[in-house]
Design a binder for these strands. Structure first.
Lengths: 198, 198
DNA sequence: GCTTGAATAGGACGAGCGTGCTATTTTGCG
DNA sequence: CGCAAAATAGCACGCTCGTCCTATTCAAGC
């Protein structure tokens, strides 16, 4: 069995599998991933899918990394087009709302699924969540340095509260539907900004 | 097969099963529940466990209801010992923190697991979450009526933001460990109160 | 074009799952 | 005690799962 894709076709197939897997994970969680189900969705044999990853766990890790990469590109990197400070913070929130809109966030699901299951997957989830929190904290720090937020603002506390707003937005959107949560999350964020404005 | 427990012994066994099930669900989620695993943990036969519920789904629903009942008793009812207003709101937060501390909240896990799976379980989750949000909203409304919060406060918005604080507290505690999240959540709640104080 | 190795298929294995059916044990009531 | 009903056990069925082993198809370089 050859694990590493060494051919253009191999790489393409692997990417296609991961893409489908992400769709599945957004709906049903990381634990719902099955080689067989994925094979059927891709019109391949179980062995064909399996050979690309070597184990179910490695498949899950690959999906996790791909999701983190997507999020980093679509939300964080996109927000870098905005100038540092509150504008960029708002851009992150806006991108994050789009990301959350429509389908569940696989990473949030993974947090819930693996927060009590020690192992490689949990470690990876923790790693990505730390990275995300650090990115948020840095973005808040920059807003202090531009003078838009007061310099007694705790950027980690700011990131913590911002994360909470996104979590409840995700929760309400997924569970109750509608657009109320978007409005409420925006208000909550406005209050967060206003309270720390210089 | 007789579903309803009609004997003291039957009721006791059923309760013991549900209690074990709640422990399992707190760690691994509602979807991880298996008749076999539960039977093994209770030193019973699969059929013995099965007969108490009639189906896996009915077992999951019973667990869900039991969790909601526990939460209502340990957090909400307990807070009723405090006078209506900010004191009671703080009591709810404190009880909620205790509830979240140590093990994951099964209801939060169920939200993530079933937010995209239409069916009876999802309906039940939505039901309990609506009830909880209503209870929070009422508690905030009472704090307006006591004059502690400004009367232009939107109680539903207050409940929304309070929920977000608990969600990120749960997230960070489960994933990162430590007690930082408790301090941060308390600060966030203080700010929420202060911003709406009359 | 042929050959080498990668990509994929096919099938088998053991385990665990939920569920139904039929005993057997245990409980509670007259 | 004895009897009816409840509680529990034992077993079997069909299904899905991850994984392994082996064969076959396909793509790329000489």
């Amino acid at each position: 069995m050859m694990l590493a894709a060494a051919t253009p076709k191999g790489v393409a197939t692997r990417s296609a599998i991961i893409e489908r897997a992400i769709g599945q994970v957004r709906k049903q969680g990381l634990e719902s991933l099955s080689i067989g189900g994925l094979a059927q969705a891709a019109a391949m044999s179980k062995s064909g899918v399996f050979a690309h990853f070597g184990s179910r766990e490695d498949l899950q890790l690959a999906v996790l990394d791909a999701v983190a990469e997507d999020f980093s590109q679509e939300v964080l990197q996109a927000a870098f087009h905005q100038p540092r400070g509150v504008k960029r913070l708002r851009a992150i929130l806006a991108g994050w709302m789009d990301w959350t809109h429509g389908a569940g966030c696989p990473m949030i699901a993974a947090v819930i699924e693996y927060d009590d299951r020690p192992g490689t997957i949990r470690d990876r989830v923790v790693h990505w969540q730390r990275r995300l929190r650090e990115a948020l904290t840095r973005a808040a720090q920059l807003a202090i340095e531009t003078g838009e937020l007061r310099d007694d603002t705790d950027p980690a506390q700011f990131a913590f509260e911002m994360f909470g707003i996104v979590l409840v937005l995700h929760h309400d959107t997924r569970l109750f539907g509608g657009t109320d949560a978007i409005v409420r999350a925006t208000h909550a964020f406005d209050r967060l900004i206003a309270d720390h404005a210089a």
